[in-house]
Amino acid sequence: MDDATPVPEKGFEKIILDEPPPFLGTWERVYRFVLIYLAVIIFLAWLFTKHYAPPV
């Protein structure tokens, strides 16, 4: 085993763009939106469970 670091190669030449998201302006806002969406889904699933739960 040797420690030579491999060189980037063919197919990786193009510049990697860190472009803005197509909606909400910044990625931070998109991430916040996804997490709020998850919270809403969990809340709805909890309501669903409560509504149809058998009586204790």
């Binding site: 969990i42 699933a45 909890w46 669903f48 469970t49 509504h51 149809y52 739960a53 058998p54």
Partner: peptide, 9 residues
Amino acid sequence: GAAGRLNAI
């Protein structure tokens, strides 16, 4: 629901 099959959370 009565059979506990909709216990998502």
